[in-house]
Every structure is written in structure tokens, then in C-alpha cells.
């Protein structure tokens, strides 16, 4: 008879790999953007063209990229932009974004919460409030459900 042990290692065995018609994520057909251009974003920031910088990082977000390095670089750059924009200007900046951009912005806000720096979380909460006013619960749900992560 089988011995009853407290070992639960068997639960970690990936039995699905032995299934031949195992579910695999779709490989995205369209080419994944390589992320925002750091030089351009910094140039825009230096000229105080914050909204343009924000749009640049959101439109070039490496959604669904499998390269963690590219994603991390884009996150760092996006957080730089988000933190550069002053509290009073957030609402105006959010107002110029499209619905899709709001969803991407929300993804970056939640990613930003994962890597807090001095004063960043409070500032991101402000961003969250303004983005939520436009995107509603739907945009938060999409952060959770969407496989095209940032």
C-alpha cells in the first residue's frame, strides 16, 4: 500500500507537459514594439513637453513582449515621465489620452506600485485616481485580465 507522507512535491510536477494538445499562448503575429526611445523621451522631458512624452511612452509600450529587459527599461522610463508631471497637471494630461492609452497607463501605474521609490506611491495614487475617473473599474479589470502585460 502507498505510504502516506506529508510530501507534496508531486503537486509541483507539470503533468500538462505530457499532454500533446496542451494549451499554448498564441504567439503574437504582429511585431512587438521594442519600447520607447529613451533619448527622445528625455529630450521631450527637458523641453517640458510632458504630455507628448507620456503619449510617446504609452504608444510604444512593449505590450506582451517576452523580453523582460525591454519591459523593465520601458517601465523605468514611463515612471520617470509619470513622476516628472506635477500633481496639478495630471488631470489635464489624462484628459488628452485615448481609452486604450488609459488602459496602458493603468497597467504602468500598478507596475509602478511594485517598485516604490521615495514619494512615488503617493504620486502614482493621484495618477490612479484621475485614470480611474475616466477608465472606471473596467480599466482596472483589464490590468488583471489582459495577457498583454507591460
Amino acid at each position: 500500500m502507498a505510504k502516506n507522507t506529508s510530501s507534496s512535491a508531486f503537486r509541483k510536477i507539470d503533468i500538462d507537459q505530457y499532454n500533446e494538445d496542451n494549451f499554448k499562448e498564441d504567439e503574437s503575429e504582429q511585431s512587438i514594439p521594442t519600447g520607447p526611445d529613451e533619448g527622445e523621451v528625455c529630450a521631450l522631458l527637458n523641453q517640458y513637453r510632458f504630455v507628448e512624452a507620456l503619449k510617446h511612452v504609452l504608444n510604444n509600450a512593449p505590450l506582451g513582449s517576452s523580453n523582460q529587459q525591454i519591459k523593465d527599461n520601458a517601465l523605468t522610463l514611463t515612471l520617470k515621465v509619470l513622476l516628472a508631471i506635477k500633481s496639478a497637471q495630471i488631470e489635464e494630461a489624462v484628459g488628452t489620452l485615448s481609452q486604450d492609452d488609459i488602459d496602458i497607463l493603468m497597467k504602468y501605474i500598478y507596475r509602478g506600485f511594485e517598485y516604490p521609490s521615495e514619494g512615488s506611491s503617493g504620486h502614482l495614487l493621484l495618477w490612479h485616481e484621475k485614470a480611474f475617473n475616466i477608465g472606471g473599474s473596467g480599466s482596472i479589470v483589464r490590468v488583471l485580465s489582459d495577457r498583454m502585460t507591460v
Partner: peptide, 10 residues
């Protein structure tokens, strides 16, 4: 496909 992303819960 026409897609509308809403502001509501799913």
C-alpha cells in the same frame, strides 16, 4: 470585430 471596452466590471 467591433470591440467596446467599457468602464464597468466584467
Amino acid at each position: 470585430v467591433i470591440k467596446l471596452k467599457t468602464e464597468y466590471l466584467p
